[in-house]
Simulated assay, not measured.
Amino acid sequence: MTTSAERSYLQEIQEAADYLRSRLGGLTPKIGLVLGSGLGDLAEQVENATMVDYHDVPHFPVSTVEGHAGRFAIGMLEGKPVIVMQGRFHYYEGYSMKKVVFPIYVMKQLGVEALVITNAAGGLNRGFAPGDLMLLSDHINMTGDSPLIGPNHSELGVRFPDMSEAYNRDYRTLAKYIGTGITGPDGDPLRLQEGVYCGISGPTYMTPAELIMLARVGGDAVGMSTVGEVIAARHAGLKVLGISCITDMAVGEELEPLTHEQVVAVANRTKPKFAALVRGFVREVKL
């Protein structure tokens, strides 16, 4: 039996999708992008874009974090219709995990099949350096929560979604191929890594002992987003490419104080390479 709370969640998704559909101008976006801290400027490159503030969309929460503009850009990128989230919602902002992933289900309702999800992350792998980009090969959910806890909405996905390939292998192969030809404004080549992302609840940065633990269990990068959204995306049947911008080194034995402003500053410096990688992927991906 479907409860009133379940009906309400499904109805809210539909109402938000209906509103956005009215702003699409006849477009059916097949690719959705979620842009993390300091990476939102890519939304400005969407052509003939319609900008929709989150607070205008029924039932949407609002981004409260610096570096997250809090709006959609809907239009064309590399000749393909896209819907871009310029900023996301975080569990640490006080939103439930179901509310955090709400936009993923809305994008699915609009016709999105492929999701590019990005974030700023600390590097746990000693072979990484600030300014590197990391393709997510897998993740470890350390948030202590999941957007699928509670009764399953069969209209959205199956009760027990498979996560054996949370991040699409073919998408990673394509991104690596594209990345080989990318250089920055000064001619420096893109350093494109691959690894496991550890998602934590935040909002505190982690202690040295916690970071040492994450590295020992197989983490290559750590951040405060992404895992819930990817769980929801796979629940909804979306294929996912995940990209982390390594903004700092989170090596427990050598940890130095860190601020959000430092994170955003490194992400800003990495934006040209990041934009080239994402645009190349959008151009070349087959749907």
Rank of each mutant, 00 (worst) to 15 (best):
residue 75 G to D: 09
residue 99 K to M: 14
residue 77 L to H: 00
residue 88 R to Y: 09
residue 99 K to V: 05
residue 94 G to V: 11
residue 67 G to D: 07
residue 82 V to S: 11
residue 71 R to D: 04
residue 107 M to T: 01
residue 90 H to I: 08
residue 81 P to L: 09
residue 92 Y to R: 04
residue 91 Y to V: 06
residue 80 K to E: 14
residue 105 Y to I: 03
residue 66 E to Y: 12
residue 64 T to A: 13
residue 69 A to L: 10
residue 68 H to M: 11
residue 65 V to K: 05
residue 91 Y to W: 15
residue 95 Y to R: 02
residue 79 G to V: 03
residue 108 K to H: 13
residue 77 L to G: 01
residue 87 G to L: 08
residue 88 R to I: 06
residue 99 K to Q: 15
residue 91 Y to G: 07
residue 100 V to H: 09
residue 94 G to I: 06
residue 67 G to S: 08
residue 97 M to N: 05
residue 84 V to Y: 12
residue 87 G to P: 06
residue 79 G to H: 10
residue 108 K to D: 10
residue 107 M to R: 00
residue 67 G to V: 09
residue 97 M to K: 08
residue 72 F to M: 04
residue 81 P to A: 14
residue 78 E to S: 15
residue 75 G to T: 05
residue 86 Q to G: 02
residue 68 H to F: 08
residue 101 V to P: 04
residue 89 F to W: 09
residue 64 T to H: 12
residue 103 P to C: 14
residue 99 K to D: 14
residue 85 M to D: 02
residue 91 Y to R: 07
residue 95 Y to M: 09
residue 84 V to W: 13
residue 67 G to W: 14
residue 68 H to T: 05
residue 89 F to S: 03
residue 101 V to I: 15
residue 102 F to D: 04
residue 88 R to L: 10
residue 83 I to S: 00
residue 88 R to A: 01
residue 101 V to H: 04
residue 95 Y to S: 03
residue 92 Y to H: 09
residue 78 E to P: 08
residue 72 F to A: 01
residue 104 I to E: 04
residue 75 G to P: 08
residue 102 F to V: 06
residue 68 H to E: 04
residue 100 V to K: 05
residue 74 I to Q: 01
residue 71 R to V: 01
residue 77 L to F: 06
residue 91 Y to H: 15
residue 89 F to T: 01
residue 107 M to Y: 02
residue 71 R to C: 10
residue 93 E to I: 08
residue 72 F to D: 00
residue 78 E to I: 03
residue 102 F to T: 01
residue 98 K to R: 15
residue 64 T to V: 14
residue 98 K to Y: 07
residue 69 A to E: 08
residue 67 G to Y: 12
residue 63 S to R: 02
residue 77 L to T: 01
residue 71 R to K: 15
residue 73 A to H: 04
residue 87 G to F: 07
residue 90 H to T: 03
residue 75 G to S: 12
residue 98 K to V: 10
residue 83 I to C: 06
residue 88 R to W: 06
residue 82 V to H: 11
residue 67 G to Q: 08
residue 81 P to Y: 06
residue 93 E to F: 09
residue 81 P to D: 13
residue 100 V to G: 01
residue 90 H to K: 04
residue 96 S to N: 12
